[in-house]
Amino acid sequence: MLEFNESLIAFDLLAKDAKEVIELLAGKMHAQGLVTAEYGTQTWAREMDHPTGLPTKPFCIAFPHADAEGVNHSALGVAVMRQPVKFQNMADPDEDLDVMLVFMLANRDPQEQIQTLRNLAVLFGQPEKLTELRDQTTLQGVVSWLRRELRLS
């Protein structure tokens, strides 16, 4: 099972950098006991070694995650940014990307979440869908859009 609920979403978020977004989403997960208190720090450390910015169109996104260690229950947190934050490109860490959507998948076991991973990869490949998500005007809109498009329960 993948935990997904309104309290794991940051909507219309203003943040100074990628670290702040990662720590905020990890904090939301920790508040629900889904990850340990260290998960944000672990994920940021992983992000610095192995960046997760993705050069999607028409704007970039990021897919931060750390090891299964620290995850009590698999969960998806999402941030919809008011202004872009910079992540480095997974394919080329020397390249900065302006990221508008952050998908944090805290995963206990990738095989268990294979269907969610498939659905995410389908979403990431569709510019018009990413735009639809970014253009949601309410938190509730973001939640129901994600539930529908990613077929989350």
Binding site: R46, H50, D67, N107, P110, I114
Partner: peptide, 13 residues
């Protein structure tokens, strides 16, 4: 992939 978890799982699948 860098972490050997989510990203490579998608490609492997």
């Amino acid at each position: 992939c860098g972490a050997g978890i989510n990203t490579s799982t998608i490609a492997e699948d």
